[in-house]
Design a protein around this nucleic acid. Sequence first.
RNA 1: UGGCCUAUGGUGUAACUGGCAACACGUCUGAUUUUGGUUCAGAAGAGUCUAGGUUCGAGCCCUAGUAGGCCAACCA
Length: 557
Amino acid sequence: MEQQKTESLNFIEQLIEQDLKEGKFSAIQTRFPPEPNGYLHIGHAKSICLNFGLAEKYKGRCNLRFDDTNPEKEETEYVESIKTDVRWLGYDWGDHEFYASDYFQDLYEMAVRLISKGVAYVDELSAEEFNVLKGTPTEPGKESPYRNRAIQENIDLFDKMKSGVYQNGERVLRAKIDMSSPNMQLRDPILYRIKHMEHHRTGSKWCIYPTYDFAHGQSDSMEQVTHSLCTLEFEVHRPLYEWLLAQLEIYPSKQTEFARLNLSYTIVSKRNLRELVEGGHVLGWDDPRMPTISGIRRRGFTATSIRKFAESVGVARRNGLTDVALLEHAVREDLNKNAPRIFGIMNPVKLIITNWPEEKEEIMKAENNPEDENAGSRALPFTRELYIDSSDFMEDPPSPSKWFRLGPDREVRLKKAYIIKCSGFKKDQEGRILEIYAEYDPATRSGQDTSGKKVKGTLGWVSVPHAVHAEVRLYDRLFLTENLNKISDDFKNHLNPNSLQTNTNVVVEPSVRTASVGNQFQFERIGYFRVDEDSTAERIIFNRTITLKDTWGKKMN
RNA sequence: UGGCCUAUGGUGUAACUGGCAACACGUCUGAUUUUGGUUCAGAAGAGUCUAGGUUCGAGCCCUAGUAGGCCAACCA
């Protein structure tokens, strides 16, 4: 008797399974529709995982469609970065790479059809007049005096718009729906506007460009998208989306909205992220502190962990605030299983094993990952002079029974090597520890310990003559405020001044000499690190992805 | 003086669509551990926004209220 746990479905999956059951179509078709006007961020990752994930799960397809209807903001550079990011997340759109701009001709013809049906017209109101007549959410709008032109006149005017007779803003094509609708989106929305401007793909072929509302739904329809998933703000656009498809009598794609991702201590708004980049608050779109996909990738978050995160966040229709701890947990889980361990010393201090011969060198064997038997092992040279972390030594710990690390007369194990006993130390005038002295117990060699000794503390170490000097960039959250949606002042006031701390004094075991950009490690007892692209042949640079959990440190505060 | 959406432990989601609320993260114990990591065992924590109603029975349905979100770009 096997008990089958029925997997719980989110509301979109329920909808899909219902549709599939009713035989509405043979397979689902989704799409991820970014506007190429900036870099993708963690919020987009949620949408990517949703759309591509659903297609995978239900054996359908997901198109990558660039929503490039506004030549003012869009650039090819962004198209490339978006493709890189989606691929990095592990999704493949095959030959289903589309552009709204590919449909400009079709969309133009659709507009002419609407005009011919008498449900679209050319308006020539000034922007101010336009806004006045539009009304407000609580007051109905008024009809434009140009609303009831003859069809042929509209056709002629639209043709003139297209052929460049008018300047930007002088004419606009509007749908003729209902100026008194309580839904502002239905008050004769703009379908086409004039922009004398080069488009990144169509060049100067067009000087009129469709708006989002006129392009998005029909693009979905032309691609036979079955489920068009978007965020909650577009909810009020749905009636317009459906109106257009119905008027044009084309494939009725269905729009379904879900809540966008909000992350604590994180800003997830393209506009604000751009401001951080342009204002020099971060070093670029791929600054490891940025929640952009390129940023978190450089920081060391893995694609697996992002996908896992997206899955655990789930999808629903209520707006909330997801705890970053969920994201952090996802990376730790992945890296714990997959990142090889090495010794790295953040604040090195010399430890001298006084009963160890000057020239003697012993090779210790260390497995690369206790969580992965296949990860192999490496050789660690052990010598008389070692580096350990200054935070692992305390001359006079405040609560001695809870201090497991080194101190006068205390014993600890040097991991993968010997148990040592501290026999003394040297300080400078300011009281800083310069050197620590200890004696090792030859009977305690790792793996062949015959002493029966038990110690509570285990320290990482690096042989002084073999040490590789490195730079480490310690990243912390970019903002100090948990919920940045709830602030009334400038979000930049909430920046964490200590979001980046550079430590150029780090020392790492010699095995990292073969490491290359993108490699990820766990520095034992410290955290996960990734080799940054700023590394050079002479100098290796590590980004700290995330610390290890630290229950002891937490208790000490 | 509008319309639409939402409301479940601290957080994110679930509850086979009416049968006394589950999972994950987080928190706290304890065990194991040559990472104060991992793993393992366990605990605390909501009676499902409020008030009515329907029903033998409601987190799920109805009504009203409250709270939050979205909508007035020739942005998406």
